[in-house]
Write a protein that binds this DNA or RNA. Structure first.
Lengths: 232, 232
DNA sequence: ACGTGTGAACACATTCACAGCT
DNA sequence: AGCTGTGAATGTGTTCACACGT
């Protein structure tokens, strides 16, 4: 009773597919750089680390963009996936919290090969405000609403300490932001209609620890030798 | 044909559940700090941002740790989840790539409230090697195997540029690491039996962009006003 | 009376296997 | 002959709703 109602999946692309499209896109762009004109589902799937049936099913949700007996035209598929993901338009991003993490995000130029523009950086620390990071001047977080509005920000990234994250989230929403990427280790509460994604280092480590423990104990299985290299 | 065979789920905890246990754990630790002795599935679920049926089903996979009519004893549940996740033992972590991101990870002391220890930091840049970050001296990546082995590292974190990530991954594996957390935007190939998890900023942004675009165009739905605050 | 634990129903995702197009 | 696109089968995850223990 605490989360969003089951969205009626009206002719939409499955979430699991959406989550993989960026991976396919990146693999395709690598092929593009090597001037490969076409690619089979088998080859593209290998590059993306999935199996080919899944890849074909995923792509089939976008339309019928392959040619039987041949494969997919790389350039065309790049365009179709980009369009589907909304990367043919530009998205303005604001990052709140310019510590090491915020700086890493700001400097990470390869924002999925364009589509995203850093429009604002925000911090509360007077020692950081006024500095220039990745060619953008850091503004004071007190002016968040004003800065976010005037820069037309549509995606807010939260890289602040946990204690400030909820507050910053609500202020982003207040300023009209409806997409939030949260790196702070807290569960954010936001109004309906706001999309929040979470990235959490310590959760990932804990999941790894669980599997590592599994491998080590219990059923007597030891890490198997491994015959070759397999994408994961 | 390119990925791991379907693991026979022999009396194991579902992956989806494992991924949520750390969230429950964090919520429980917050309750512990406030000295709350017991909690209902309803209340804990709200704090974790899931619904209560899911929470109960998740916890039921660990055992029968609640009391009907009452709820769960916070302390006891913290212990059980910690044990299940393997956090009652210590895990040594090595971080390769001490740029802004690597530094952010190293400085992020709150590694899920203990359980993880930074045992080694590695970089290729002579300007960084020898420096001390988070009380650990940065070693040269050329000595990875040696350092990783002698420090007994069991989890490797890759925060290098994309170009070096695959190489570093194989050297981690070579040195006996079987759990890898990858922040570089590449699909890693590793031998069977090695567990890789990926965290990818630009993929998250692209997923947000997809949903933002959905909201904006097509079916005419505009971002709804939102009646109240709902965890996400 | 209350809240957990769970079977049954449902929803979503993956994989198989092959018909159909080039 | 080769490879896509997709129904059907299977596997996984979520939600419902209520029996059961305290």
């Amino acid at each position: 009773m605490t989360n969003r109602p089951p969205r009626p999946r009206g002719r939409g692309i499955p979430d699991a597919t959406v989550a993989r499209l960026p991976v396919y896109l990146r693999a395709l762009q690598a092929l593009q750089d090597r001037e490969t004109p076409t690619v089979s589902s088998e080859a593209l799937a290998a590059a993306a680390g999935v199996n080919s049936a899944k890849l074909r099913k995923d792509l089939s949700h976008l339309g019928s963009y392959g040619t039987r007996g041949v494969g997919y035209e790389v350039e065309y598929l790049v365009y179709q996936i980009s369009r589907e993901l909304g990367l043919t338009q530009d998205w303005s991003v604001a990052i709140a919290g310019i510590g090491n993490l915020g700086r890493a995000l700001a400097d990470y130029g390869g924002f999925g090969s364009r589509g995203f523009r850093i429009a604002a950086l925000l911090d509360a620390d007077p020692a950081v405000v006024g500095r220039t990071v990745a060619a953008v001047e850091v503004g004071h977080i007190d002016r968040l609403e004003e800065i976010v509005r005037s820069a037309g920000v549509s995606i807010g990234v939260i890289a602040t300490p946990a204690a400030s994250a909820q507050d910053v989230a609500l202020r982003f929403v207040e300023a009209g932001v409806t997409s939030i990427l949260n790196f702070a280790p807290v569960v954010l509460s936001v109004p309906e209609g706001v999309d929040v994604r979470k990235v959490d280092l310590s959760i990932e480590l804990q999941i790894l620890a669980f599997h590592a423990q599994r491998r080590a104990d219990g059923d007597g299985r030891r890490p198997v030798g491994g015959t070759g290299l397999e994408p994961v």
